[in-house]
Design a protein around this nucleic acid. Sequence first.
RNA 1: GCCCCCAUCGUCUAGUGGACUAGGACGCAGCCCUUUCAAGGCUACGACCGGGGUUCGAAUCCCCGUGGGGGCACCA
Length: 493
Amino acid sequence: MNLSPVRVRFAPSPTGRMHLGSARTALYDYLLARRSAGQFILRIEDTDRKRFVEGAEQELRDGLRWLGIQYDEGPDLGGPYGPYRQSERQESYQQWAAELLRRDQAFPCFCSADRLEKVRQEQLKNKQSLRYDGTCRQLDPAEAQRRIAAGEKHVIRFKMPYEGETRAVDTMRGEIVWQNKDLDDSVLMKSDGLPTYHLAAMADDYEMKITHVIRGSEWLSSFPLHVNIIRALGWPEPIWMHLSVFLKPSGKGKMSKREAAEAIKDGHSIFVTDLKDLGYTPEGVLNWIVLMGWGVAEDDVMSLDQMVQRFDPTNLNPSPAAINFAKLDHFNGTHIRLMDAADLAGRIKPFLVGAGFSVDDAKLLKIVPLIRERLVTLDDSIPFAGFFFKDELTPDPQDLIAKDLTPAQSAGVAQTALEILTDLPDVSHAQAEPPLRRFVEQSGLQPNQVFGILRVAVTGQKVSPPLFESMEIIGREVVLARIRRAVELLTTF
RNA sequence: GCCCCCAUCGUCUAGUGGACUAGGACGCAGCCCUUUCAAGGCUACGACCGGGGUUCGAAUCCCCGUGGGGGCACCA
């Protein structure tokens, strides 16, 4: 691929939450920019005042920051081509619209919403394609001028050629050809004086010197409009890539609101900040989404930097991809296992604190190696490490009874173990294991019967990190107290 | 109804005319390891949508079907 520096932009509209599709587009933008030592720009497309959502831009920025996708220019950072919010660039759009009018590549349209709707119904009835019928395109320019001067409400539409064809290249798909007769005279400037995406995005891309446009495939249908606007104004054309959409897990249809809610019920989510709260790591999420639409032959576990090294946009896959949360779990667990203890401890701590535990850092650092390979999400640290920070445990007495043993027999086992441990200077792994193993052998019991009782006694749960390592961290006094308590529970069962 | 895009294991994908007995990953199943749960190791199962061409040779190129997806707003 060509490695001369690119300028790419991630241009979301602040109309909702940041989802996986956006994150992946931003990631590809970032990878391409870094790979070529170019710039990655964040631009906010807020020309729709009706759909504006307060806080959406903040969530976008938080999401990007959390993922580690850093932009070089943006609304909060500034940059040489600002402002980076479309609402702050209105004069520019008005000028370009005027220029299009001057070049006879656009026309004012006075059609009312009512009339347009009637036309649409008619077309629907006649099974025709749904598009503007060209009424105002025929208007005498002087007449149109008079009506504008008189203050009549109007929009500006692009004058799409009636004949011939439009050709444009998408790097993932090659050349695409449209018959101009199938194309529409789309609105460029709304009657409120604000531009539509079509004009605003093209003008910004031109003024911000964007070289590569990476966007969702939902833009494929307005692709010919966009290249025609660019060509009408004589601007240089960027290189285009239209990314496939994400399909719901079943593979049938794209992610919907309903499906998003379904995922949340399942302990997953398609929203970036939710994933963070659920205990997913940026590494895991990034590794997961980078591979949806792009493939590597082998070694698919990658850090962001490794992705930068390997990313090749000519290898992107244009077909839609079904979301697979099991794979997110896999990548998240894998990256957790790759972290060093201090790093992981720092990430786990907020989850433990959030669950109400007061966390001792030194202790947590010792716990981390024990639980690291058991975590799928950071959130899993709560069941695996919580008991280390509890003052008192109340195990279910039922759980203290070993398989094939009576409560009384189980109590006897616990009592013997308690005596063995009491005689020891400490309950370190090295000190505690040999005598307890000897006890298992002499008693003729199964290891899991003895250790099972102790596990529940010491950790309060049937599933836990390794027993001896856990006891060592918990410490002699607490371990003995907990086993004593278990004996009590079993004898009064 | 119209326009456009897409098509390899259940899923994400590698594959750019001969190196394909179609590779990897997830999941699933089995085994090993093991005091629980994991992790790890090994093994198994599993795909070129269909039909026509082009070619000595096609998963790969072309056409047609079929299936899937996106769009057809004064939303992005």
